[in-house]
Design a protein around this nucleic acid. Sequence first.
DNA 1: ATATCGATTATCT
DNA 2: GATAATCGATATG
Length: 187
Amino acid sequence: MVAPGLLGKLLVRRQGGREQRARIVETEAYLGEDDAAAHAAAGRTARTAVLFGPPGRAYVYRIYGLHWCLNVSTLPEGQAGGVLFRAAGELSGPGRLTRGLAVGGALNGCDLTRPGALFLADDGYRPASIAVTARVGIRKAADLPYRYYLEGEAAVSRPRGPVLQRLSPIAPERRGRVYSGIPCHGH
DNA sequence: ATATCGATTATCT
DNA sequence: GATAATCGATATG
């Protein structure tokens, strides 16, 4: 359950002398071949190579010809799995998020567990209440309950389906500036 | 309030 | 050639 665990963490973007931080408020999980909605469902291809690679890497792809979507790989080498960042900070929706943080194809494959141009950080913040709904914007396997968001956050993206479940706050895993919880998973 | 549409390109059939 | 993990604008109830 990497996807809900990422809620409340920070997405840090460094470029030039500038640093932006955005707290993750909405995520979606995508699995491998069992998940018809996942890009990895059709097997390993040039595009999905990152999803099959080591965990904690950025999977960035273009959607509808004009937006970028940012994911992080979550399963060990050889297994496909990822989490899509749907909203962070004030940025609502995956396309706006990547535009706001200037994330593009150049960052595909970058290691998000170590400080660099783009990485994940944990400042100790712990979310209050996590809601679970069906995923948004997909046609296949649209019924699976793999969308997670922080209740009460304004930036959570629009089409909210009914809340199927609520999760208790995730226990603190590890302290420190850089978030290294990605390799610890189990779905 | 929900519904439909256009923009635009990498990827796969 | 069809499709797509989106967004913003426009139309209609």
